[in-house]
Nucleic acid binder design. Structure first.
Lengths: 349, 349
DNA sequence: CTGTTAGCGCATTCAC
DNA sequence: GTGAATGCGCTAACAG
């Protein structure tokens, strides 16, 4: 029983049925006027339907459309931490591209917990999203890895598209960031401007992205002539605080002869800068620092952080295009990175 | 016709119907076993259904549930810019709380365009979200304001809940941030430590949040004895680049006798810091700077930025709780802010 | 081109 | 308790 009153109080949203009645046409005609892919509706009717819809403030029920059509207009995005600039930049790209395609993005945060991630994938699958994008690598030796893979594959089997960002552990579509090559190039450039003795601050062992960067860095040093002792590879949380803490530990251990510290990502690098300063030293001068990602803030810290630029937003866009079957996105290889030298690594020769 | 094959190739997701058949029970029993609020299903049957569901890798179709139940488990979140730390922090809070309530968040970016915002609200309404959260103020004199209000009210009339964050233009539920009081307190403290001559860098005229902060700052100065010439209120984009540009313009105009520049938000403040440095001056020493929000990065810039702390993530959480009718959230007043003095505003006496 | 009808996947009322 | 039947809002054949 609908309300007979003035309409001021609570009332159910108008349905297509209401619109059809108001316009004096059939349900089908109303549907076709409002959506009909191949428009073939008398202009007069069409107009009446549109007016009726406006009058009733009609808004199509997307859930109903989804069940009827058997397909949704949803994209699911999973990130580790929404507030982390790395992920929020990627998310911005995904959302921008999704908007462009008239798709709606639902977002969830794994908080870097593999079990949570699996749980979220299961829940999000219920939405029957057209695409599922997972950003952020997980531990290489992860017990839930198999289950995640199964879940994702089942999702793909049922017509979904999953895209991984910077994590090719599973045999799925991936937007590859050449972390290894980027770090290698960085190492070469740093040796090129005079640095010889390095240390590294990175995330927990087994984090794929972090591992690739460290390995690449190591390879670059080996080729160019820099040194990195195994003792000088510090592990901590893959966050700003982890970078701060890692650097603090490195400094407490005695300054040693380390000239430059490579942080496996920018947020850690920024934390490292602060730790150096808090220890009474001058970053850049006493200890040089380099990061990875080129998140927006690194231009604004002092000294500005040398890093490897990763086109984060573009990666988000590309992830969605890739999922949607964009030919170009398919063809392109790994996302190009670029070394950006700044004041945190002044030349030494 | 379902596939008879091995199941390796594409196949439609299992439906509740499939599960029921596999378990040898009726649709109703399957439904009750998997969800049934008032559980009243034979344990034996229940078990069989659960097993069948697992075997078929069943995932309930949320759209179908939404249609049948007449209600969704969705929360819609609108922000100006996802990559902006202010919004991404709020978003993180909303997502965390939503997850807690087993709600799914869909996110969209208005890009600070009122028309886009209106359009997005219309689209998102189609999802029939339980809650709609809008963050970020819009121009006070905005032609689409009326339409937005209408749309939002219609949404509420149909049972939805909208919550505004830091914008009470419309007559709707709001998580209020006392921007005025925060800025006023900041002004008093700054005068207290010796500053007298101020300038302000803020967003476009009419931006409510920005306006409140500037007015509060002005009021604080008036009470404490600081001065701010109208000429020294610079307007620019409400972004990092806007802050940089605004400061550059201020500096180019001649240093004048301005001792401290108040940026209406932290991202502008951070940009201002960089502009000062790029002009060959030392921020904090030559020109002091203060911001607003206390986004994570302001601890890591040099000098660390004095600001007014706004509990961004908590605001996101509270917005959702408020929408959900949480009594505490209703009772609480404006979100408390706190002045945080840092090195960018060294004491002058 | 338009209207009628049969589902889409699921919850739920109603008999059994 | 359990199952059959109805309906949610909408789309997509299917006939006219």
């Amino acid at each position: 029983m609908a309300e007979a009153g003035t309409g001021i109080s609570r009332s159910a949203p108008a349905t297509l049925h209401d619109v059809a009645r108001e316009a004096g046409v059939s349900l089908a005609t109303a549907s076709r006027s409002l959506n009909g892919s191949t428009r073939k509706v008398n202009e007069e009717y069409r107009k009446r339907v549109l007016e009726a819809a406006a009058r009733l403030d009609y808004s199509p029920n997307l859930s109903a459309q989804a069940v009827a059509r058997g397909t949704t207009t949803t994209v699911a995005l999973l990130v580790a931490d929404i507030a982390d600039p790395y992920f929020s930049s990627i998310a911005a790209g995904v959302v921008a591209e999704a908007d462009h395609e008239h798709l709606i993005v639902t977002m969830a945060a794994t908080e870097r917990d593999p079990e949570r991630e699996l749980e979220l994938v299961r829940t999000l699958r219920g939405q029957r999203p057209r695409v599922m994008i997972l950003a952020g690598s997980r531990p290489t030796a992860d017990p839930t890895e198999g289950a995640l893979g199964e879940e994702l594959r089942a999702y793909e089997r049922s017509g979904g598209r999953v895209v991984l960002i910077s994590r090719n552990e599973l045999d799925l579509r991936t937007v590859l960031v050449d972390n290894f090559a980027g770090a290698e190039a960085l190492a070469r450039e740093l040796v090129g401007i005079g640095y010889r003795k390095f240390a590294v601050i990175t995330g927990a062992e087994g984090l794929r992205t972090a591992a690739d960067r460290v390995e690449g860095f190591r390879a670059g040093l080996a080729a160019a002539g820099g040194t990195l002792d195994d003792d000088d590879v510090i592990r901590d949380a893959f966050t700003r605080d982890g970078g701060y803490d890692g650097m603090r530990r490195l400094l407490e251990r005695g300054p040693g002869d380390v000239e430059l510290v490579f942080a496996a990502n920018d947020v850690m690098g920024v934390g490292a800068l602060s730790a150096i300063r808090d220890a009474g030293l001058t970053p850049g001068t006493d200890v040089a620092v380099a990061g990875f990602d080129d998140i927006p803030t690194v231009r604004d810290v002092t000294p500005a952080l040398t890093t490897v630029r990763v086109p984060l937003e573009e990666i988000g866009r590309r992830a969605l295009r890739l999922a949607l079957g964009d030919a170009d996105a398919q063809a392109e290889g790994a996302v190009p990175t670029e070394v950006v030298l700044r004041e945190s690594t002044p030349g030494r020769k």
